[in-house]
């Protein structure tokens, strides 16, 4: 008895047990929601490895029996479903597009935070105003413009409209503001010009914001369906999300193929998410608060 109290004082023990009960209570509340979130995703994974013949089984066969890769091999051998090409397209579009967005946003964000020039406020209000305009209005003219430039079914059709996006600028501007002005003044005294100050002094200091912007722009471009659906129509030019619709069309009503395709599109982002979850969640938090 006496040894026990010496090891853990009653108050500490009470605190630990209070913590335990609180955690247990929270889990009782949130476990059903967690299951609702998880089950459909696990179902997709399971169905990707389920034989076409077993796809329509009821009650549902949660664990595939047997586990098969036939859905994947069927996609890979079908010349009408160039999924490797789609994957490559998605990767190039998302990577380069993200690079463009991050670079342009950091340049503009820096100017709006730190530099003076006539018309700065007007320009900034214009960017803010554009946030109010739903994408619906710009779809048709942007499509017609790209058609006239003969850029439909090319990567450019995605990259350059993406380069016009403004949200990254607000994020970068917010972070450039937080850099002490004295740092730049010191560099200026040392004779650095404004481009060197931006590139060598300020940019490294907002690396965190750039990584966050990179992650969000990448996920956005990788997952987008609507715009690629409009400007990409040739089989070989499609991205994965549009390709997934093709897999579900016409003679491909085989459900297993759709799930295998969904698996291929989802696993990279889920792994990406698992790696960067801390950054992603911190990024949303700051972006959300900046948005206020």
């Amino acid at each position: 008895m006496t040894t026990l109290t010496r090891v853990s004082s009653p108050s500490a023990r009470r605190r630990i047990s209070k913590e335990f009960w609180r955690s247990l209570g929270m889990w009782l509340i949130f476990l059903p929601l967690a299951l609702v979130v998880v089950i459909p995703v696990l179902y997709m994974f399971s169905m990707a490895f389920t034989l076409e013949a077993n796809q329509l089984k009821f009650p549902i066969e949660w664990i595939p029996n047997p586990v098969t890769f036939s859905n994947f091999t069927k996609i890979f051998v079908d010349p009408q479903l160039p999924i490797v090409r789609w994957f490559t397209n998605s990767l190039i579009i998302a990577t380069v597009g993200t690079g463009i967005i991050v670079f342009l946003s950091s340049l503009s964000g820096y100017a709006f935070a730190r530099l003076e020039f006539p018309g700065k406020n007007l320009l900034f209000s214009l960017l803010l105003f554009s946030l109010m305009i739903p994408a619906a209005v710009t779809l048709i003219p942007a499509f017609l413009l790209l058609r006239d430039l003969k850029l439909l079914n090319t990567y450019h059709a995605i990259w350059w409209p993406a380069a016009a996006s403004v949200t990254g600028i607000f994020l970068m501007r917010q972070h450039f503001y937080s850099i002490p002005v004295e740092l730049e003044d010191a560099a200026r005294v040392d004779g650095a010009n404004r481009f060197r100050i931006y590139w060598q002094i300020c940019l490294p200091l907002v690396r965190g914001a750039m990584v966050a912007l990179f992650i969000f722009a990448f996920l956005g471009l990788w997952n987008d369906l609507f715009w690629p659906l409009i400007v990409l129509s040739e089989r070989a030019a499609l991205t994965l999300p549009v390709g997934l619709l093709v897999i579900q069309q016409g003679s491909y009503i085989q459900r297993g193929l759709a799930f295998a395709g969904a698996f291929i599109a989802s696993v990279p982002v889920l792994v990406f998410y698992a790696f960067f979850q801390r950054k992603i969640i911190a990024g949303i938090t700051t972006a959300g608060l900046a948005g206020r």
């Binding site: 997952n223 369906l225 997934l244 969904a262 989802s266 982002v269 889920l270």
Partner: peptide
């Protein structure tokens, strides 16, 4: 779920 494509 928010990081999955709407196609998925």
């Amino acid at each position: 779920p928010g990081i999955l494509s709407v196609s998925v």
